[in-house]
Design a protein around this nucleic acid. Structure first.
Lengths: 363, 363
DNA sequence: CACACCCGTGGGAGCGCTCCCACTCAAACC
DNA sequence: GGTTTGAGTGGGAGCGCTCCCACGGGTGTG
């Protein structure tokens, strides 16, 4: 064991010639302290390098200053999704800015037992004050419990139930705009490769696809649609199947950039060229999409804003400054590049704010 | 604000008709409790779903049960390294097994100010009991401070200083074996593409490369070596430069699988075939390496064991069951596949335990 | 001039645990 | 039969904070 005891509030109080309470006020920025006294105390604190004991503070104030971030159990696997790390990072940044620390909880939200463990390990001992849940599945066992406990939480990605707290991006609007854009390019035989529809955002993306087709009066039954994993291999084969089939599509809307890249790969492997023979639009607008050679047109999610919004909502919930359910939507936009058929040096044909990315060389 | 007050030790004591102390003993698995009493208390606890308050516990016991995991500041960027997520995951798993929770600290260890912040936010308030540091750079500003404070920490990846706690893999031995293997394949003009040598493991990998060459009596000055980022693009161009140069190498040892894949890409783009024209060995043995089509021979790191070892060492340090410096080495091995020139269906020519991977189809 | 009032300050009483010491009662010893 | 032992139990005294109430003295009011 290493030496334990360190400075306490009382020690500082004695050193500065004031009471414990006054030091506490200074530490907590309580205005009811004379300026001269405040300075004196602050100097003493700085001199000895005092920092209040977190446990004592948590015990007395009933606030731990820690929030939990639930990430899917197979951290490693999910991190294959290039969209995920920036999200986590923005949550960590935002939490830090609001004075909270973050505990990463690698837990399944589907498994009843894992959920129970999580609750009894972190929530009941009051280790954490709130929870950000990064994966909104339809089979979520955690959220209902939090809901009934009245525990502050926020989902990243909406839930199907209407009474949940969440922040989300307008997935449906995103694919709707993207598909409309493709149609305006003259596409006649649209197809979509979607992620697994156990994930709510995949559902929404499909609906946006369908919205656009309906608006254009296209028969949904004549279009092709298939589901693959968002990030894992599989899209390549799915795309090949489509492209070799009877109703070879002339454009494919992919539910993620990773899928889009596989699609382009597949198309080129059978001698098709993008966008001439096949227009492609992805989703997420990951870095790889911005690669000049690739020039993937993609629906952009405001990932950083999403993380910040989640923390913001959660903190409001924790502080009782907002009444649940709190639901916040962030807009998706279309990042136009080459693969949709646009020459990126000229204005996009769409109506939207599909703006050119800085990464694209100006014409 | 939500309702606060919940069950306490005292409440359980009253319900079970025993004293606070007895309940505490039951909760903490103290043997000095009669079996019948223990059962009664446990039942009461289970009934009301009691969990001890973490803050009170931490305050009284002077132990928070939390350790910090320092990851590089640009979480998102580093996660491009496919080797990193499994490492983090193994740390999280191992910590959970030992009853610790993990707080992810996204902080630079180079920046003096960031280090000060980290110390005053997490260490001095005693929020965390120990620190796992995942990136061992040569310009580390954190470790010296921890060292002089006597604060428990462990580096993943050795430090250049001899008195640090660390766990590491035998990088040098790994590249030495790999290079020797290439030489046994008849390579005459070896080259290496290394990571940035501000990272200690890159240094070690270079030394292993040199060791093998010296053992074989090959003049180091006649070999080519260059440095690129471990994970970011750049290796492609570096490889092209080498392969188009005057002394075109007949084998390249890459310091990461990501680099190795770029190298193979580059070679094939100028009409060379691997392994016939160019033998390649990578490092890390990431999933992509095991891809059958690619069949990348690679130096395998026991990533999972590495994370577990780190937590193990840290916990021993925290509990005073080990005296610093604690240093632990884990072996690297060679995973033989196609790109080194071996037919994976037959035994490798090397002396090592370069064993075939299960992923490789038996001949 | 007595009273109310507010600002700045001090100290008591917790927060819910752990740790230690004291106590009881029974079995084991001389 | 008195004493030692030890297992099992209870309760006091913290851990280092926050929160609340009380207090003193200066200013403002009737």
């Amino acid at each position: 064991m290493r030496d334990d005891r360190s400075m306490t509030l009382n020690d500082i109080a004695k050193l500065a010639g004031v009471s414990r309470s006054t030091v506490s006020r200074v530490v907590n920025d309580d205005p009811r302290v004379r300026e001269s006294v405040r300075r004196r105390v602050q100097e003493t604190i700085a001199q000895v390098g005092y920092q209040p004991n977190a446990a004592a503070r948590a015990l007395a104030s009933r606030r731990s200053g820690v929030i939990g971030l639930v990430v899917p159990p197979s951290f490693a696997e999910v991190y294959a999704d290039p969209w995920f790390p920036p999200l986590v990072q923005s949550c960590l940044d935002a939490a830090r800015d609001t004075g909270f620390s973050v505990m990463v909880l690698m837990d399944s939200v589907e498994d009843e037992e894992a959920v129970t463990t999580l609750i009894s390990r972190f929530i009941r001992p009051r280790t954490i004050e709130g929870l950000v849940i990064t994966n909104s599945l339809q089979s979520d066992a955690l959220t209902p419990k939090l809901q009934s406990m009245g525990f502050p939480y926020v989902l990243i990605g909406r839930a199907v139930e209407s009474d949940r707290n969440f922040v989300d991006v307008t997935n449906r609007q995103g694919t709707r705009l993207a598909m409309r854009h493709l149609l305006e390019h003259g596409c006649r035989r649209p197809a979509m490769i979607n992620g697994e529809e156990t994930i709510v955002s995949a559902l929404d993306r499909r609906h946006g696809f369908e919205d656009a087709l309906e608006e254009a009066g296209i028969d949904l039954h004549a279009t092709q649609r298939t589901n693959v994993d968002f990030w894992r291999p599989g899209a390549h084969d799915a795309a090949l199947d489509m492209l070799r089939g009877d109703h070879r599509p002339d454009c494919i809307l992919a539910a993620s950039d990773t899928i889009a890249i596989s699609v382009i790969d597949a198309a080129e492997s059978i001698g098709m060229s993008v966008p001439e023979d096949l227009a492609v639009i992805g989703f997420d607008d990951i870095n790889a999409a911005r690669n000049e050679r690739l020039g993937l047109t993609s629906v952009k999610q405001p990932v950083d804003a999403l993380g910040r919004a989640a923390i913001d909502v959660l903190v409001q919930l924790i502080n009782g400054r907002a009444q649940p359910p709190v639901q916040r939507w962030l807009d998706t936009t279309l990042s136009i590049r080459h693969t949709c058929g646009c020459d990126p040096s000229i204005a996009p044909p769409g109506d939207g704010d599909g703006r050119k990315e800085g990464a694209v060389a100006p014409g």
